[in-house]
Design a protein around this nucleic acid. Structure first.
Length: 675
DNA sequence: CGAATGTGGCTTTTT
DNA sequence: GCCACATTCG
C-alpha cells in the first residue's frame, strides 16, 4: 500500500501567525551563546557545553522555551544520565513555566526504554510484567547457563562470570561482534571464543524464555521495536516530537542509534555535552558520538557555551592546561569573570594516613573561614581509595556521605530478600529462584538446579516445594508457605510483603552473617523505600534502574544533609560542584590507574577524568598525593604526582609538603635537609 | 553424591 | 570482602 500522499497545508490564522508572546525574558536570563541554543529552531542541534558553562541551565530554559512557544509538554522527551538529574531539571523548569513541565517525559535511556517496552514490548516478545536484571543478576544467570552447558572446564582458564558479562555487554553497547571484542580487548581469552559464543546464545535464550531483561536488553529491544514494528514506531515518534539529550559525550553507539531512530520522523533532537568530559568508555560510551553527531544528522547547528560560571581563573587555568594535551577535542576557550581566587594546592603526603589527616585538618580550617561542610567534597579515582579517609573522618566526627562504590541494593542480604519478592512477581525468574533455594538448609547447587526445572514447568510451584522429602524438606515447606502467603488473596502492599519475607529470612540472615545487626538496618531501609510503592512491579524495576546510592547511614540522619561533606568517585561527581574540592591519590599509578597504561585511548580517558575532577571546584582546589606507596598489583613503588601535571608550570600551584608535628623533619629541619 | 566449610587470589569507574 | 576452587562432612 504505497499510495502517494499529497500534503495539504493548513494555513495559520492571522492570530496564530503573529509571534507568540513569551512569558519569560530569555535574553535577560541567559548569555548570548546560551540564548542561541535555548531559542534554536527545529532540526538537529549540538550544544558543546564546557565545564561549568551553564549546561543544565540551558537545558532547563530550553524545556521552558519549547513549552512557552506552544509545544505540548508531553511531546518533549528529556534523556539524562540519572533520573535524579531529570527530576531536578524538570522541577527547575517548573519554577519558570509552571506545572505544565510535569508532563514532560524525563529519565535515563534505560528508564524510558523500560516504560516504552512495558507498553509496546509484546511486539518484540516481552510481556508487560518482565523482570529487569541488574548487573549482579545478569552475572548469576550467566553462571547458571554456563554450568548447564557444562562449560566450566577446569583444565583451561575460563573467564569469570563478571568478565563474561562485561564482554557481552560491551559487544551490545558498541554494536561490535563478540569476536571483535574478545580478540581486541580480551585477547587472552581468544581460545574460548566458541564457548563464549555458545554461552551468549544460551544466555540470550534463557532471558527470553523467562521474561528476563538485562540493562543492555532494554536498549537493544527498544531499538528493535523502533526498527521492526511500524505501529509502535509511529506511535512513539508521534509522541516524542522534541528530544533533548544531556551528557551526550557519555552515550554509546547503541544509544546513539536509539536516538537516531526516535528522531527519524522529525529530526528535532538537541544533544548537549562536552567531549572533554567523556569518561564512560569502559561501559561502551564513545566520545566519537559527539564528534560525529553533525555527520549523522545532516544540517546540525552547533552551539558552544564557553563562559564558565563555576570556577575562579586560577582553577580554570589549571584545567585548561590539563586538557590542552588531549589528543582530540572540539576547540573551545573557557573563560570566567571570577578572576581572583587562591591558587590550587598540590600537597605531598608521606603516606596514605598523612593524606587523610591533612584533609581532615584542612576541612576544619576551612570551616573556620566560613566554608560549610556541605560545600566540601573529596574526590577519588576508585571507590576504595577513600577507606582510610573514612576512618579518619569518623574518628574526628566529621560527618560525610559517600557516593559511588558498592550500592546497598547490591549487598547480598538485600538481594536475598528481593529475590523472594521477585519469584512471586515472576515465577519464571530462574535467577531469583536459584538464589532463594540456595538459602534453604540442605539445598546446594544440584538440588537447586533440579528444582528449578520442575518449578518452571509446574503450574503450582509451591506444591512442588512441599513434595520434597529429605534434609531440605522442612525448609522448602516453610519457603512455600511464606511465598504463598504473599501471592495469596491477602492483597498485601509492597511494604507488608517485604515484612513477611523479612520474618522468614531473619533466621537465615543471623545464621549466615556475624555482622547481621548492620544488615538488618539495610533491610529496614528497604522496607521504608517499599512504603512508597503500592505495586511490587514498580518497586522492583525502580530499584533496578535507579538504585538508591547510600548505605544505611544515609537514612539515619536525612535531615542533616546540609551539614555533611561528600566523598565521591569522580564518575559519581559528574555534573556537580562544590566551593572546595579535594582530589586524593593524585599519584601516578593510581591516577592514572595502572590499568589504563595499555592503550592510548584509556590514557586519554584518564586525562578527561582528571579534568572532570578539577573542574568540580568553584574556589578551593587541593590535589594530594601520598609518596612511597607500594602498589601490590603492579609491584611498583608509587611516589610521583600524576603525569597529567608534568607539563603544568609550577607557578600555577601552591606546593605543600606535609610534615608530622614534632618529627625530626619539622618545617625548619625539612628546609635544611632539602636545600 | 552433594552440601557445607575452608583457603588463596585479586580488587576501577556504573545505568 | 568476594569469587573460584579445594577439602571435609553427612
Amino acid at each position: 500500500m504505497n499510495r502517494e500522499i499529497t500534503p495539504y497545508i493548513l494555513k495559520r490564522t492571522p492570530e496564530e501567525a503573529a509571534p507568540r508572546k513569551l512569558s519569560i525574558d530569555y535574553a535577560a536570563a541567559l548569555n548570548p551563546q546560551q540564548l542561541a541554543a535555548v531559542t534554536a529552531g527545529d532540526g538537529p542541534s549540538l550544544v558543546i557545553a564546557g565545564a561549568g558553562s551553564g549546561k543544565t541551565r540551558t537545558l532547563v530554559y530550553r524545556v521552558a522555551y519549547l513549552i512557552d512557544s506552544g509545544v505540548d509538554p508531553s511531546n518533549i522527551l528529556l534523556l539524562t544520565f540519572t533520573r535524579k538529574s531529570a527530576q531536578e531539571m524538570l522541577q527547575r523548569a517548573g519554577e519558570l513555566i509552571g506545572v505544565r513541565s510535569e508532563r514532560v517525559c524525563g529519565g535515563t535511556f534505560h528508564s524510558v526504554a523500560n516504560m516504552l517496552l512495558r507498553r509496546y514490548g509484546r511486539a518484540v516478545g516481552l510481556e508487560p510484567g518482565f523482570t529487569i536484571l541488574d548487573r549482579g543478576d545478569a552475572e548469576d544467570l550467566i553462571a547458571l547457563v554456563r554450568s548447564q552447558l557444562g562449560l566450566n572446564e577446569k583444565d583451561k582458564r575460563f573467564p569469570r562470570k563478571g568478565t563474561i558479562a562485561e564482554i557481552f555487554s560491551k559487544s551490545e553497547n558498541t554494536l561490535r561482534s563478540l569476536d571483535d571484542i574478545v580478540v581486541e580487548e580480551f585477547g587472552h581469552f581468544a581460545d574460548h571464543l566458541d564457548a563464549l559464543a555458545q554461552l551468549q546464545k544460551g544466555y540470550h535464550a534463557a532471558k527470553r524464555q523467562r521474561q528476563l531483561v538485562d540493562y543492555d536488553d532494554l536498549l537493544v529491544l527498544l531499538r528493535q521495536l523502533l526498527t521492526q514494528d511500524q505501529q509502535a514506531r509511529q506511535a512513539i515518534s508521534r509522541l516524542y516530537r522534541y528530544i533533548l539529550v544531556d551528557e551526550y559525550q557519555d552515550t554509546n553507539r547503541l544509544q546513539a542509534d536509539v536516538i537516531r531512530n526516535l528522531a527519524a520522523a522529525h529530526q528535532n533532537v538537541m544533544v548537549v555535552g562536552d567531549d572533554s568530559q567523556s569518561i564512560y568508555a569502559f561501559r561502551g560510551a564513545t566520545f566519537r558520538n559527539i564528534m560525529e553527531f553533525p555527520a549523522l544528522f545532516p544540517g546540525t547547528t552547533i552551539y558552544k557555551l564557553e563562559e564558565n560560571y563555576r570556577s575562579t581563573q586560577p582553577i580554570l587555568n589549571l584545567a585548561n592546561c590539563i586538557i590542552e594535551e588531549a589528543a582530540e577535542k572540539y576547540a573551545k576557550h573557557l573563560f570566567t569573570r571570577k578572576l581572583d581566587g587562591p591558587l590550587p594546592t598540590l600537597a605531598e603526603a608521606t603516606g596514605e594516613n598523612a593524606q587523610s589527616r591533612f584533609i581532615a585538618q584542612k576541612i576544619l580550617e576551612l570551616r573556620e573561614e566560613g566554608v560549610p561542610l556541605s560545600e566540601v567534597a573529596v574526590l577519588f579515582r576508585s571507590s576504595f581509595h577513600s577507606f582510610d579517609l573514612e576512618i579518619e573522618l569518623s574518628r574526628r566526627e566529621l560527618p560525610f556521605v559517600k557516593r559511588g562504590g558498592v550500592k546497598f541494593i547490591e549487598t547480598a542480604h538485600v538481594k536475598d530478600l528481593l529475590a523472594h519478592l521477585r519469584v512471586v512477581a515472576n515465577p519464571l525468574d530462574a535467577v531469583s529462584w536459584h538464589r532463594v533455594l540456595m538459602l534453604v538448609e540442605g539445598v546446594g547447587p544440584k538440588k537447586a538446579q533440579d528444582l528449578l526445572g520442575a518449578l518452571v514447568k509446574s503450574a503450582s510451584p509451591y506444591q512442588v516445594l512441599r513434595e520434597v522429602s529429605g534434609r531440605s524438606g522442612q525448609g522448602l515447606k516453610n519457603l512455600a508457605n511464606t511465598l504463598e502467603s504473599l501471592s495469596g488473596s491477602g492483597e498485601l502492599g509492597t511494604a507488608d510483603q517485604v515484612n513477611h519475607i523479612y520474618e522468614y529470612y531473619l533466621p537465615i540472615l543471623k545464621e549466615q552473617y556475624d555482622d547481621y545487626p548492620k544488615r538488618i538496618r539495610d533491610l529496614d531501609h528497604l522496607h521504608t523505600i517499599a512504603e512508597g510503592y503500592p505495586e511490587v512491579d514498580g518497586f522492583l524495576s525502580d530499584l533496578a534502574l535507579e538504585p538508591p546510592d547510600g548505605s544505611a547511614i544515609d537514612v539515619e540522619a536525612p535531615d542533616r544533609d546540609d551539614e555533611r561533606m561528600v566523598l565521591s568517585t569522580i564518575h559519581s561527581a559528574k555534573g556537580l560542584e562544590w566551593q572546595c574540592v579535594f582530589v586524593i591519590w593524585v599519584v601516578d599509578g593510581k591516577f592514572p590507574s595502572i590499568y589504563s597504561f595499555v592503550t592510548d585511548e584509556d590514557m586519554e580517558e584518564e586525562r578527561r577524568l582528571f579534568y572532570v575532577a578539577v573542574t568540580r571546584a568553584k574556589r578551593h582546589l587541593y590535589l594530594t598525593y601520598p609518596i612511597n606507596v607500594f602498589d601490590k598489583s603492579s609491584g611498583m613503588l608509587l611516589s610521583k604526582p600524576t603525569r597529567f601535571l608534568d607539563h603544568v608550570s609550577p607557578s600555577m600551584f601552591e606546593q605543600l609538603a606535609l610534615i608530622e608535628e614534632g618529627s625530626h623533619a619539622d618545617w625548619r629541619g625539612y628546609r635544611d635537609d632539602a636545600y
